[in-house]
Design a protein around this nucleic acid. Structure first.
Lengths: 343, 343
DNA sequence: ATAAAAAATTCAATCGATTGCGTAAAATAT
DNA sequence: ATATTTTACGCAATCGATTGAATTTTTTAT
């Protein structure tokens, strides 16, 4: 690409025989420039195809009007929805999004966060990687005076703004629903327990049983079954147990639940009569499997909107120190065919 | 958020009783700074928790190491995959992505593009909105000396770098496959014809018939059926025709194909024996419907990688003017149950 | 017509990092 | 020990826009 000299406010000023100050003021709708001059400046700016250099402007102003977002993967439904939601609310206020993906890798996450600090973003929005083990990099964000908003997968010990789902409650409701529908031996596929969300979902599962004073069967709780393949594998193991489960709550994702469904089909086990299935996330495909899969909707786009609004709210009263605040969105249990055991 | 004074190279210089120049040079691995000094500087920078101000650096250097991406929607599988692919290849070279969504609205797209020009991005990657009618804003990108890469939905008349799928060929193969499998009256659900991709897909359909000298039946070509709902609606209309089709090629998307499938199921029409269905995009759900849906894989993540690499290739020989170049990726027909008519 | 007040501009510094050029210091050669 | 080359560092301008303070111009009041 050939280098193109772009017009600056100096070019406009020169052409008009005035100062760059006036041009700047005119372009920023300052009241201290004559209306006729302003019109002339705007007209000339237009003619010269002037575009403000946001870099220079931001450098001077000390902020970037940019929000950095770090997620494990951009192309994962939940995250892309959240991002879309954030973009929706922030774009209209003139903020831009810089997107990074950690790929679930702690070191890359650190790199991403550092890049964002370098970029002088005004806010870092993050959902941590599955293998994150410490949060120095997040503390670092705060130390640099950058607003930090965690969502979904959060470091609980860090007192920051957080937007989360009430995973515990959602999970509790899902399991309660299954119990109420007559399932007796409900297995749990759990995700990496270093992530808060999976701990919470497990807690919901435990609470559902505890409240009904039903003992937990430990062999029905399977660790780390959070992909379709792992879900399928776990299911094979479970269904071959001497006393197999009559329901499986794939608390990690709908993909995992899909793995369960496929194995059940392959083993000729009838869903939902012989095996109930519940997933998590309300992925589009859950309503078109047969039977359709009971799952939990997280309102991901709305979550993104909430994050955006939260940021503006805090920016608005930026003079006072940010009080750590947790916004919890209640997910919704979507009851479908896969848990419809006839009593 | 309280304002935090961030350490600059001046702070480091002051602490060490040297000049900012040396600090800058040390931090940029310039050879003209003594090794011992460098070490000292780096150590001090670390102690003071220094983070380079990318804004200032970029302003001085005249580029932003940032790539702007404009897509209709971030949370649409194809696009989020492409973005993930771009991010993969560009991040490791120190480039960041600024993401905007046009929401399929021309005016918002113009806004997005202008924002990116303001941001002094080094490259704009775009897939145009469905209702785009002129491309002045894209020309504008070029005029500002910014590399422009179009992908998938491109303005054909603009000579730029383009990364596209060979939609025509893919569509041709899909329709040929259906003809070969014995379907006689194959309907086409087409998308907005102002978008190149939908024109090409239609052409592929036409060519498949032309090559076999089979006449086209106009009433089987339905305009603008590119969402699940519109696909369903079109299907209802088609299947109620005196001479209904025996196959439907939902050239717009798998969602549209899903609409077809659901209507067929509702009307008790057997797929694939009484009605063949082919979609487009290879969305995850197409392999779990029953029957699974024949579709076309676009290699979207790979497409993103290609875009990233193309950019670096052009940046590498940035001295010469960019020759317009079109990289066409061959999509793959994925044959599944929905087109398995028994001959 | 003059003074005072208000409005419009200009001046000059600033944001933080980079870099061409000049100079001092160190290393090597004579 | 002196001349020459290298190496290391400092000086000062620059990138483009913004902004407080100073100055000029215009308007209003007397």
């Amino acid at each position: 690409m050939k280098k193109v000299k772009r017009t600056t406010i100096y070019d406009i000023a020169a052409k008009l025989g005035i100062t760059a100050s006036s041009v700047s003021r005119a372009l920023n709708n300052s009241s201290q420039v004559n209306e006729k001059t302003r019109e002339l400046i705007i007209k000339t700016a237009d003619e010269l195809n002037y575009k403000r250099n946001t870099l220079a402007s931001n450098l001077r102003k000390g902020h970037s009007k940019t929000i950095g977002v770090v997620v494990p993967r951009i192309n994962q439904n939940f995250f892309s929805n959240v991002i879309a939601g954030i973009e929706e609310t922030t774009y209209q206020k003139g903020y831009n999004l810089i997107i990074c993906q950690s790929g679930e890798v702690h070191d890359k996450e650190i790199q991403c966060v550092n890049t964002l600090i370098n970029q002088h973003v005004d806010c870092v929005v993050i959902s941590v990687a599955a293998d994150s083990y410490d949060y120095q990099h997040l503390q670092n964000v705060i130390d640099h005076g950058i607003q930090l908003i965690q969502f979904d997968r959060v470091a609980e010990e860090l007192e920051t703004l957080k937007v989360i789902n009430d995973n515990e409650q959602a999970s509790f409701e899902a399991v309660s629903h299954m119990i109420d529908n007559g399932y007796k031996r409900i297995a749990l596929l759990e995700g990496p327990q270093n992530l808060n969300i999976f701990r919470q979902r497990k807690n919901g599962y435990l609470r559902a049983f505890a409240e009904r004073k039903i003992p937990i069967i430990n062999e029905l709780v399977i660790e780390n079954a959070w992909t379709k393949e792992l879900g399928a594998e776990a299911t094979r193991k479970l269904l071959n147990l001497p006393q197999p489960p009559d329901a499986i709550f794939a608390s990690t994702s709908d993909f995992s639940a899909l793995g369960v469904l496929e194995v059940a089909n392959a083993m000729n086990i009838k869903v939902p009569s012989e095996l109930g299935i519940c997933g998590y996330s309300n992925e589009a495909f859950t309503q078109i499997t047969s039977p359709s899969i009971t799952t939990i909707d997280q309102f991901s786009v709305y979550m993104g909107n909430t994050i955006g609004n939260l940021f503006f709210q805090e920016v608005a009263n930026s003079d006072v120190a940010v009080k750590p605040k947790i916004i919890s969105i209640k997910p919704e249990l979507i009851i479908r065919g896969s848990t419809a055991k006839k009593a």
